[in-house]
Computed example of a mutant assay.
Amino acid sequence: MNDDKITDIEPAPIYVSLELSKRSWLVASLLPECARPSLRTIPAGDSAALLDHLQKLKERAARKAKGPLAIRLCFEIGYDGFWIARMLLANGIDTYVLDPASFLVSRRGKRVKTDRIDAEAMIGILKAYLAGDKSVCRTVAVPTPEEEDARRLMRERSDLVRERTRIISRIRGLLALHGVREVRAIWGGKWADQLDDMRTGDGRPLEQHQRRQIERCFARLELLNDQIKLVEADRAQAITSETTSFPCAEKAVRLEQLKGIGSNSATMLVAEVFCRQFDNRRQLASFIGLAPSPYNSGSVERDQGISKAGNHETRVLLVELAWCWLRYQPASELSQWYRDRYKGRGKRSAKIGIIALARKLLIALWRFVETGLVPQGAELRAT
């Protein structure tokens, strides 16, 4: 009977917060029955030193505590990513990754900010959160290494495409300075032969240094095109391989069945959004940042547009898919809804309408990958 009572005792918490930086980690800890947190600085990235310090904190608290102890640790998500959380969880330490943008801060005057103040404030936030006050902050779900690696695949492609666009714009700008408006080999091909025959607006061949600069830009462009092809080959293998570690690969395959949804878009949506679990459509729209953000105070009522609180790249992709949906799924119920409500009412109305269509399309695609429910009137690709 006494043993049962001992095991039912709630462990006394040792609150710990980490303030991470590139050079050092500041560890703030609050032991049971202590009024103020203690501080300790350890080298950045030294996980062994961190675990050793946590063990010493537990031993120190055990000298005065009469019951079991448990470490409750938190830190802000940032430069170091999630590897620290996975390491701590693997060592049996209760870890919470906090979203710093969700902290409630004072808006009176200038806010004093130091690592010490932030570390001590996080302990107070963690105590309130564990006590049941979920309004003080939001926690970030720690992804598995497979989920994080799947996101990296499509994010690398997005980075390469943006870099390719900058180089193409640079080439066109260099040529436009001398009256050259058309570049036929901009997407690949025999661009060197085209430079031989190219003439400026006043009939001169390209100058020596100008041509060499353009050649180097084309060389970088060719390298980027090759790297994008390699990334897309890795994507195809990750989706179709039987031994793939890509999460929810079957959802990406299902999305590709819909006309207007390409393979890259389907993979990115699954890696960033549909590999997660959502209880309802409101949670889904809020996660992407496509939820409305009204402003109602006293007699003032106005709409501030969408919240834009989620993943920017995914939100941009959904707007692009909404335009593609209108083109490749004109007979669908969503396209008909957009035409009846927004078409022919000006550019502003079209811009507002495409955002609304993107939100509806997101929910329809979510239902499709989860339950197989085809959006009303949508066409599937021939198998």
Rank of each mutant, 00 (worst) to 15 (best):
D3M: 08
K5P: 00
I6T: 15
T7F: 03
E10W: 05
E10S: 09
P11H: 07
V16K: 04
V16I: 11
L18F: 08
E19A: 05
L20Y: 05
V27L: 10
P32N: 10
P32D: 12
C34F: 09
R36C: 06
P37E: 05
L39S: 06
A44T: 11
E59R: 13
E59A: 11
A62K: 15
K66F: 09
D80F: 01
A90N: 13
A101I: 00
F103D: 01
V105I: 10
K113E: 07
I117K: 10
E120N: 08
G124V: 00
G124T: 03
K127I: 14
L130I: 05
D133Q: 09
R138D: 09
V140R: 08
V142A: 03
E147S: 05
E147W: 01
L153M: 11
S158A: 12
S158P: 00
E163I: 04
E163C: 07
I167H: 15
R170C: 09
L175A: 01
G179H: 07
R184D: 11
G188T: 08
G189I: 14
D193M: 07
D193S: 14
T200H: 11
G203Q: 13
R204I: 00
H209Y: 13
E215Y: 05
R216A: 06
L221E: 03
D226P: 00
Q227C: 01
A233E: 14
T243N: 15
S245W: 03
S245M: 08
P247Y: 06
E250M: 05
R254I: 02
Q257I: 00
G262T: 08
N264K: 05
N264V: 15
A266E: 03
A266S: 15
L269E: 04
V270C: 04
V270Y: 03
A271C: 08
F274V: 13
R276D: 03
Q277I: 00
I288S: 02
A291G: 09
P292C: 05
P292S: 09
Y295I: 06
N296H: 14
G298M: 04
K308F: 15
H312T: 11
V316K: 15
V319M: 11
S332P: 03
W337L: 06
Y338S: 02
R345H: 14
G353N: 06
A358Q: 12
L362M: 14
I363D: 08
W366Y: 15
R367E: 11
R367G: 13
T371S: 14
V374Y: 01
P375S: 08
L380C: 12
A382T: 10
